[in-house]
Amino acid sequence: MNYKKKGTQTIIFSEPIKISSAASVTGPKEGKGPVAKEFDVVLSDEYAGADSWEKAESLIVEKTIKIVCEKASLTKDKIDFALAGDLLNQEIGSAFGYRESEIPFIGLFGACSTFGEAIGLGSCLVDGRFAENIIASASSHFCAAERQFRFPLELGSQRPPTSTWTVTGAGAVVLSKNTKGSGAFVTGATFGKIIDLGVKDANNMGAAMAPAAADTVLAFLRDTKTDPQTFDKIITGDLGYLGGELFLDILSKEGINISNYTDCGIEIFDKKTQDTHCGGSGCGCSATVFCARFYPKLVSGEIEKVLFVPTGALMSATSSQQGETIPSIAHLVVVEHRR
């Protein structure tokens, strides 16, 4: 039996999996940032027409999956499975978002790394011929996340300078068994280990997650014996400014120097004008930025090959209150342009 797993934790697909379409829907703050023009829909307010933040997140998910199906010219009955997740307790953001869809639903939890987990697992299902078309999606909502993880929004407290801003938005892709034509293709995935180097500060998620991202990237490079320079971009999920810096520091200690680095949390907000401190975060951060900013360039060939590494902090408000450190994870997918 010829296994597709390489090295310790990397999978190389036997045939590239096509990303047939990508869609992103965001809130108004994201719509004032540097990626604004690239999102499919920017909502005018955080309620999205619902009467609570949680319902708003589900409506955003619903909208996103509708758009991603339309863009792939597929009706919902042609979608075999949906793999989705979010940050809310018991994943109500995704569950209520897919409630009316009638698509077989596989809920995932990887905190903010969920989008990477969904694309990786979805590609495995397609590669193994268990499915023809799969939706992978992830979402988050600033207001819903704040009140679940921290304090009420109206509490007059100051955000520490290391904090990041949870993105309001959802991103989704359709993964297809379709090797014809040009476009963006998933060719490999590395599922991360849980890494915890002892960061406790829930207002410094970038620092908590940086080692996990470094570990997964290192594992991929060693598993496949690849030089990081062969990629046009190495894109982490939501490490932000501080986490990004630490990520590069850890890798350079291992003798790996990365010059083509960016982070979705850095891309999505304008540091000077949007007062987001260390950048954007949340499941929706990597999902919306990948779908809006990088996917189109991978389709057109403007970018040839990227490592996309969404990162997640696997803590809860309870574990934080109990004084636990923050275990983190990062999942990596290789996305390439093919002619």
């Binding site: 180097l197 960061v199 260390c278």
Partner: peptide, 27 residues
């Protein structure tokens, strides 16, 4: 080795060094 080798102590020092500080005086 397929694993990052930085230890918890080293890393927490790196975090401490790189973290932006609040401007206590103006605050």
């Amino acid at each position: 080795m397929n694993h990052i080798t930085v230890t918890s102590n080293e890393f927490l020092k790196m975090v401490e060094k790189s973290s932006p500080k609040s401007n206590i005086f103006t605050n």
